[in-house]
Nucleic acid binder design. Sequence first.
DNA 1: TGATCATGTGTTTACGTAAACATGAAGAAG
DNA 2: CTTCTTCATGTTTACGTAAACACATGATCA
Lengths: 328, 328
Amino acid sequence: MADVAAMAGVSSQTVSRVVNNRSNVEEETRQRVLSAMRVLGYRPNTAARALVTGQFRTLGLISFGLSSFGNARTVDAVTRAAQRAGYTVNMIAVESQTEQAVHEAFDQLTVQAVDGIVLIEAQILDTPSLRLPPGVPVVMADGDVSHRHPMVDTDQALGARLITRHLLDLGHETVWHVAGPEDSYAARRRAESWHATLKEAGAATPQLLFGDWSAASGYKAGRELARRPGVTAVFAANDQMALGVMRAMIEAGHRVPEDVSIAGFDDLDESAYLSPPLTTVRQDFDVVAEKIVALMIGQIETGAAPSATAFVAPELVVRQSTGAPPRT
Amino acid sequence: MADVAAMAGVSSQTVSRVVNNRSNVEEETRQRVLSAMRVLGYRPNTAARALVTGQFRTLGLISFGLSSFGNARTVDAVTRAAQRAGYTVNMIAVESQTEQAVHEAFDQLTVQAVDGIVLIEAQILDTPSLRLPPGVPVVMADGDVSHRHPMVDTDQALGARLITRHLLDLGHETVWHVAGPEDSYAARRRAESWHATLKEAGAATPQLLFGDWSAASGYKAGRELARRPGVTAVFAANDQMALGVMRAMIEAGHRVPEDVSIAGFDDLDESAYLSPPLTTVRQDFDVVAEKIVALMIGQIETGAAPSATAFVAPELVVRQSTGAPPRT
DNA sequence: TGATCATGTGTTTACGTAAACATGAAGAAG
DNA sequence: CTTCTTCATGTTTACGTAAACACATGATCA
C-alpha cells in the first residue's frame, strides 16, 4: 500500500480511501491511484483490514457433511448467496452430531475469523448448554423454532401434508412413513405433519419406521414393509430413503406403483430418472439460502438480532411412482 | 491478551508463548496463564495473528458446484482432511466454468486470506493465461498432468479400463460410452482409456456420446442408444448419467441387464439401491483428499513446489446392471 | 573460579490497514 | 472583504499478535 501511495504521489490514507470507494477523492487522483494499484498488482491485506475494522466478510458454515443431498444443496446455495453478497464461506464439517462436536466447531470458527455462523441441519441438541460465543450472529437452517436464533427452513409440515394428501386422494386407505433420524427437527416435523394429516382424514396411523436419510436405511425399512401385508402407500422422508424402499419392494416382487405407491421428499436431480420416476416434494434450496444470508447480513450490519423465522413453501411433484391402490 | 497477561501477572509475550505451545515456559506459569485464559474467555484474534505471521491456516477451495456427486464428495473429503490438519476451508463455488470466472475466484481468495488454493474439477482452461497470483501454492484435484501445479486424482484410465474389460469379458462384442463434457480432463481420460481398451481387445470402437454428468443428459444419450440396434453394453462416465441411460432403456422396453448392460463410474451411495443395482467403479475420495491436503500443506510449510502427480486406484464394483449379452 | 551456556521471562518493534484528527485551499455567505 | 464551510488530502494513531532482542538466573564445564 505504501508503494502504491508513493507511486501515485499520495498518502497511504488516500489509497485506502480509493480502495474503499470513499466519495471524497478527486477523480483524477483516484485514477492515478487505481493505475498504480494495477501496475504494482496491489492486493489489500485482509488480515490487516480485519484487524482494524473487526469485520472479516466471511461467514462460518457448520454442517454435518455433504453426503445427504439436502445438505449438499443447502451448502451450495448458501455459498453462492453469500458470494453474491460479497461474503466468503468458511466451511466446517462436523463428524458426529454431538453437542461436543458442534461446540468445537463453533470454537474453531470464532477463533477463525467469521462475522456470523450458519448452522445447517441442526440436530436436536441441548442448545441451552451450547454457550455460543456472544456477539456472533447465528442463523439456523433447520432447528427448533423456539431457539433464540433466527431460523429459515422449508415448510416441512406443508410438504409432508401435500404428499400424504396426494396418496390419500389416490384412494389409499392409509400411508406408511419412513422417517428421518429421531433427532432431526426436519424429520420430526415431516413425521408430525404426516400423522396429523392422516388423523384429519380419519385414516389409520400406522407404526412409524425410522431411517438415517441414507438409501441403505430406506432399503432396510422397505424390507420390513414389504413383508407386511396391506401396505399400499409409503412416504419416505427423503428421496434417498424412498429409493431404498423402492428397491426393497421391487426385490420382494411388488410392482411400483401398481402394488405399492412410493413417494419421497427433496426432489433430487436424479429422482425424475429412477425407474419408475419418483413422486416427491421439491424444496427450493436457493430461496432458503437467500433468506438465510439476508438474515445473516442484516444481523451483522445492523447488530440487531431479529428472532425471525421464515418458512419457504415446497411443491408437490407427481411422477410415476404413485398411483391408485390395487383393487383387492 | 493484555488482560490475560495482567491477570496471570506475566507479560503478554509469555501469554503468546503459552498460546503457541512454546517449550520454554515454566509449567507453573503456563498453568497460571491457562487458567487466566479460561476465566476471561480469551480467544486469540486470528486477524492480528495472521497479520504478524503471514499465515492464515486456511485453504481456499474452488469448485464448480456441489450438484455433481463427485464434486460434493471431494469437497466434503477435502474439508475434513483439512480440518484434521488444523486448517479451515474457504469455499468458492464458480458459476460458469470460464477462465474469467476462475480468475475472479482466485482473486477473491487471495484477497480473502488463504495459504493455498485447491482447485477441484478443473475444466480444460487456457491455464497459461490464468496468471495465478504468485506465491500462493495451488493443488489441482483434476486437471492436466502437464500443469506446473501438483495434481491428485483418481486413476481415471484404470477405472475406465476395468469397467470396459469387465463388459468385454462378459461377452459383449463392444461397449458404447457416454462421456462427460468435452472440456473435462476426467471425462477425457475415461473416454481415452475406454477407447484404448476396446482397441487392445480388437473390438469395434463405436461413436462417442457426450453428456454433462447429469442424469438428464444421460437420459438423452440413452434414448439415442435405445433406438440403435445392437447396443448391448453401455459404460456411462458417471453414475448419474448411467441412471439416465438406464431409465431411457427401460422406457424403450429394453431389460437391464438381459437386453443391455449398463455401468457407471463413481459409486454413489445410492447406486447399490437402483433397480437394478448399478455396476460401477468406486473412487476413493477420502484418499484423494488426504493426498491433496498433504501436498498442499507440504508446499505451504516448506515453501517448495513439488510438481508431484498422485493417482489413486479405483475399484470395480460388480452389481446387477451388467450381464452377458443376449443370445441373438 | 570464572567463562560459557541454557532457560525463563520481559521489552521493543513491526505487520498493513482504517479511524480520528489536522491542514490547507477554494468557494459561499454575510 | 471577512468569516464560515466544504472538500481533498495528509499525519498520527490503534488494532492484537509474534518475532527479535535483551536480560537475569542458575547450571555446566574446563
